[in-house]
Deep mutational scan, measured.
Amino acid sequence: MDVFMKGLSKAKEGVVAAAEKTKQGVAEAAGKTKEGVLYVGSKTKEGVVHGVATVAEKTKEQVTNVGGAVVTGVTAVAQKTVEGAGSIAAATGFVKKDQLGKNEEGAPQEGILEDMPVDPDNEAYEMPSEEGYQDYEPEA
């Protein structure tokens, strides 16, 4: 019985440690998101679009440190934060509304985080759909 109880105690310690790591990862992701939003706020009209992409990228980098179902929630929060940063930029006159959601080359930025393969159960990952990809044929 002692062996059984000791095993359960060790398992509990492992769960607590994993929860603490997840909590730490979420806190880091939130900190990076805040950094990115402050970065966007300090940019001029020309830099705002690039700044919004930076927020998304920093958040995406930190999301990889967070495991399990938390990833889905962090990704949703990050996307809403990026959308909010863009709205703030438009409201303050840093950028025109028609410039939001495009990178410096004018290509749409939507789907940055949505296409990231995420499995809350950590069982399997699927690649994003290939609808947006084109076949590449090298020139002879």
Score class of each variant (00 low, 15 high):
Met1Gly: 00
Met1Phe: 00
Met1Gln: 00
Asp2Phe: 05
Asp2Lys: 01
Asp2Ile: 02
Asp2Ser: 02
Val3Ala: 02
Val3Ile: 04
Phe4Trp: 07
Phe4Thr: 00
Met5Val: 08
Met5Ala: 07
Gly7Gln: 07
Gly7Val: 13
Leu8Glu: 00
Ser9Asn: 15
Lys10Trp: 08
Lys10Tyr: 10
Ala11Glu: 00
Ala11Cys: 07
Lys12Phe: 12
Lys12Thr: 07
Glu13Thr: 12
Glu13Val: 03
Glu13Lys: 07
Gly14Thr: 15
Val16Gln: 03
Val16Asn: 06
Val16Lys: 10
Val16Phe: 10
Ala17Asn: 09
Ala18Lys: 04
Ala19Gly: 02
Ala19Asp: 00
Ala19Phe: 08
Ala19Asn: 01
Glu20Thr: 07
Lys21Ile: 09
Thr22Met: 11
Thr22Ser: 12
Thr22Pro: 00
Lys23Ile: 02
Lys23Arg: 09
Lys23Gly: 01
Lys23Met: 12
Lys23Trp: 14
Gln24Phe: 09
Gln24Leu: 07
Gln24Glu: 07
Gly25Lys: 09
Gly25Thr: 12
Gly25Ala: 07
Gly25Glu: 12
Val26Lys: 00
Ala27Gly: 04
Ala27Met: 11
Glu28Gly: 10
Glu28Leu: 09
Glu28Asp: 04
Glu28Gln: 06
Glu28Ala: 13
Glu28Lys: 13
Ala29Thr: 05
Ala30Arg: 02
Ala30Pro: 00
Gly31Lys: 13
Lys32Asn: 06
Lys32Val: 05
Thr33Cys: 03
Thr33Tyr: 10
Lys34His: 04
Lys34Glu: 00
Glu35Pro: 01
Glu35Gln: 04
Glu35Arg: 09
Val37Gln: 00
Val37Glu: 00
Tyr39Trp: 02
Val40Leu: 14
Val40Met: 10
Val40Pro: 00
Val40Thr: 01
Val40His: 02
Gly41Ala: 11
Gly41Ile: 04
Ser42Trp: 14
Ser42Gln: 06
Lys43Pro: 00
Thr44Leu: 11
Thr44Pro: 01
Thr44Ile: 11
Lys45Glu: 00
Lys45Thr: 11
Glu46Asp: 10
Gly47Leu: 08
Gly47Pro: 01
Gly47Asp: 11
Val48Arg: 01
Val49Trp: 09
Val49His: 09
His50Ala: 14
His50Cys: 12
Gly51Cys: 11
Gly51Ala: 06
Val52Pro: 01
Ala53Ile: 10
Thr54Leu: 06
Thr54Met: 14
Thr54Asn: 09
Ala56Val: 11
Ala56Trp: 13
Ala56Ile: 13
Glu57Phe: 04
Lys58Met: 09
Lys60Met: 12
Lys60Arg: 04
Glu61Lys: 06
Glu61Pro: 04
Glu61Asn: 07
Val63Gln: 01
Thr64Gln: 11
Thr64Pro: 05
Thr64Ile: 13
Thr64Leu: 07
Thr64Phe: 14
Thr64Asp: 07
Asn65Ile: 12
Gly67Tyr: 13
Gly67Ala: 14
Gly68Leu: 14
Gly68Ala: 07
Gly68Cys: 07
Ala69Glu: 03
Ala69Tyr: 08
Ala69Arg: 08
Val70Trp: 08
Thr72Gln: 13
Thr72Trp: 12
Gly73Asn: 14
Val74Arg: 01
Val74Glu: 02
Thr75Pro: 02
Thr75Leu: 14
Thr75Asn: 12
Thr75Val: 13
Thr75Trp: 10
Thr75Glu: 06
Ala76Ser: 06
Ala76His: 09
Ala76Asn: 12
Ala76Asp: 03
Val77Arg: 08
Val77Glu: 03
Ala78Gly: 06
Ala78His: 09
Gln79Asp: 05
Thr81Ala: 11
Val82Cys: 05
Val82Ala: 11
Val82Asn: 04
Glu83Ala: 15
Gly84Ile: 15
Gly84Asn: 12
Ala85Trp: 08
Gly86Phe: 09
Ser87Trp: 15
Ala89Tyr: 07
Ala90Lys: 06
Ala90Tyr: 10
Ala90His: 06
Ala91Lys: 04
Ala91Leu: 09
Ala91Tyr: 06
Thr92Cys: 12
Thr92Tyr: 15
Thr92Pro: 10
Gly93Asp: 06
Gly93Pro: 06
Gly93Ser: 06
Phe94Ser: 05
Val95His: 14
Lys96Ala: 14
Lys96Pro: 05
Lys96Ile: 02
Lys97Asn: 11
Lys97Phe: 02
Lys97Asp: 13
Asp98Lys: 09
Gln99His: 05
Leu100Ser: 08
Leu100Asn: 06
Leu100Thr: 04
Gly101Thr: 06
Gly101Gln: 05
Gly101Arg: 10
Lys102His: 05
Asn103Ile: 06
Asn103Gln: 08
Glu104Asn: 15
Glu104Trp: 10
Gly106Met: 05
Ala107Asn: 15
Ala107Asp: 06
Pro108Tyr: 04
Gln109Asp: 14
Gln109Leu: 07
Glu110Phe: 08
Glu110Ala: 13
Ile112Trp: 09
Ile112Thr: 14
Leu113Val: 15
Glu114Val: 05
Glu114Ala: 04
Glu114Met: 04
Glu114Ser: 13
Asp115Thr: 09
Met116Arg: 02
Pro117His: 06
Pro117Met: 11
Val118Lys: 11
Val118His: 11
Val118Glu: 14
Asp119Phe: 03
Asp119Trp: 02
Asp119Pro: 15
Asp119Tyr: 01
Asp121Thr: 07
Asp121Cys: 08
Asn122Ile: 10
Asn122Ala: 03
Asn122His: 06
Asn122Glu: 07
Glu123Cys: 06
Tyr125Cys: 07
Tyr125His: 09
Glu126Cys: 07
Glu126Asp: 10
Met127Leu: 15
Met127Thr: 04
Ser129Asp: 06
Ser129Arg: 03
Glu131Gly: 04
Glu131Val: 06
Gly132His: 04
Asp135Asn: 13
Asp135Trp: 05
Tyr136Asn: 03
Glu137His: 06
Pro138Glu: 02
Glu139Met: 07
Glu139Thr: 04
Glu139Ala: 15
Glu139Asp: 06
Glu139Val: 07
Ala140Ser: 15
Ala140Pro: 10
Ala140Asp: 06
